[in-house]
Nucleic acid binder design. Structure first.
Lengths: 160, 160
DNA sequence: ATTGAACTGTTCATTAATGAACTATCATAC
DNA sequence: GTATGATAGTTCATTAATGAACAGTTCAAT
């Protein structure tokens, strides 16, 4: 019982700990997105695509990764295509799915945005100086363990 | 130059690392909030208040902690007051400010919500089993360092 | 081939979140 | 004490995000 309580205290502490970092990240992301004329879902979509080799993914996959509702996704993608940051075409062999890819124009835009003064990367680069190399490595490692577990749970529970 | 590039790579990695955990947290928070008839800002407000002794804070302070726009705050608080989860009264000595406090009713609600099956605390308790005690301690420590730094930066830059 | 079910994405109506203008209160300077 | 400016919160009009119904495509069973 005492042990159960200990677990609850810890999970609460861990959640708060993530939240206190995260709220600052979110705040900056919003700022950057707005300054560059993007909605939050649009920013999220671009970030998700950059994580993939060739910056190329199906819309369905993007949805799975980001948990964005599909109507939101559809509208956001539409805007990005119109801005010329994203190309969208049917997947060969399955005309239901849409293949999304960041255009050269989009890549240039992202680069500008990330080097931008007061941007989130600048902020995080100095924030990281608070950590030793060892702390950094272990932080990444722990996050990896946690996110791997969380992802597996989400799948089990069956999204939406 | 090589060193500068290294820093960029790391800050990118760190951001992604946070994001991959965070998106799962957010997803669960949304689910829990919706299931309990709360908006995201309302959930955020309640969580913020529980962090404070006596679960009591001014609305202004809540705004500073959460970065929620004040119109959003005002509406969200209004709803919580109407549901009977929050009490709201003018601060003595400064009738401009509003003192918010979680009611007994609100406390009971939060307790139910957190013990709820499939809730985020349950999820995090099992997620934590992925980490050793040492990893856990160091994770909390690193987050603390980062969030302290981020908070200080936000203040310097002068929020909105 | 044909039917029905499952899937991917779009459209449209609705809800949620927000910025801007406003009200009330307080602090400061005269 | 009165005027001016700053602060805290509310109201209202607007924008952003979302759920539900829908259209087109694929797959499996007959």
């Amino acid at each position: 019982m005492e042990h159960e309580n200990q677990k609850l205290v810890r999970s609460t502490q861990l959640l708060r700990s993530f939240w206190s970092v995260q709220k600052n990240i979110v705040r900056f992301v919003q700022k950057i997105a707005v300054e560059n004329g993007l909605s939050i879902p649009q920013y999220t979509i671009l970030m998700t695509l950059t994580l993939h080799k060739e910056m190329k993914m199906t819309q369905k996959k993007v949805g799975e990764q980001t948990f964005l509702p599909k109507s939101t996704l559809s509208h956001a993608v539409d805007g990005l295509v119109q801005e010329g940051f994203l190309s969208r075409q049917q997947v060969e062999g399955n005309r239901r799915e849409m293949e999304l890819m960041i255009t050269d124009n989009g890549k240039a835009f992202l680069k500008r945005m990330h080097l931008q003064d007061g941007g989130i990367h600048q902020l995080f680069q100095s924030a990281m100086e608070q950590l030793t190399d060892k702390q950094y490595e272990e932080l990444i490692e722990s996050h990896l363990l946690l996110s791997a577990y969380l992802e597996s749970q989400v799948k089990d529970q069956g999204g939406k």
